[in-house]
């Protein structure tokens, strides 16, 4: 059962990702990105990381992609003025490079040792909360500073007159 679900959601994620990078219009890309994000969230659920799956959907699909969609609508580039994409050779070379990378990682992944067992309950709300607020408290706090900086930066950049 797990294998079937893994293959299903993995396939959806990969197909969605391919669509994201191949679609001409950014809106289509954004929608396929949501698909991929959902599939990845489902994979998280398969590994018992329920909390992360929920956060993945809330943060990525609920906020980041909405932001993308918002910007796409805001600047609303007409289809005729979308940039002309690179030549086929460049694209083929890019795909080849990525293929080499994926093959290398596949070889490495087979060598990489991890205990093969059922998913540990590390992604639930309780364990994540405990880890975040004890061992990784400093990192967590620094994240808030990062977010604050991002908020200020975004406002400073996008606002016409401050």
């Amino acid at each position: 059962m797990e294998t079937v679900l893994f293959i299903l959601f993995g396939a959806i994620a990969v197909c969605g990702a391919i669509m994201v990078v191949t679609r001409k219009h950014p809106m289509a890309s954004a929608l396929y990105l949501i698909l991929t994000l959902f599939a990845v969230a489902a994979l998280f659920v398969l590994r018992q990381a329920h909390f992360l799956a929920a956060v993945q959907v809330i943060v990525y699909a609920g906020a980041v992609v909405v932001l993308f969609v918002f910007v796409i609508m805001l600047i609303n580039v007409p289809e005729s003025r979308l940039p002309v994409e690179r030549a086929t050779t460049t694209r083929v070379l890019g795909v080849l490079a990525a293929g080499v990378f994926i093959l290398e990682s596949a070889v490495l992944a087979r060598r990489f040792w991890m205990p093969k067992g059922p998913a540990a309950e590390v992604g639930t709300v309780e364990t994540m909360g405990r880890a975040l607020f004890t061992d990784y408290l400093l990192a967590f706090e620094i994240t808030s500073v990062l977010l604050l900086a991002a908020v200020i930066g975004a406002i400073a950049l996008a606002k016409r007159k401050i």
Partner: peptide, 23 residues
């Protein structure tokens, strides 16, 4: 076990219907 977070996750999706329809 993520009850409310799930609720947030799906309610965050509602915006797409409106945005997509608008666009």
């Amino acid at each position: 076990n993520v009850g409310i977070l799930y609720l947030f996750a799906v309610s965050g999706m509602t915006v797409y219907g409106v945005v997509l329809a608008g666009w």
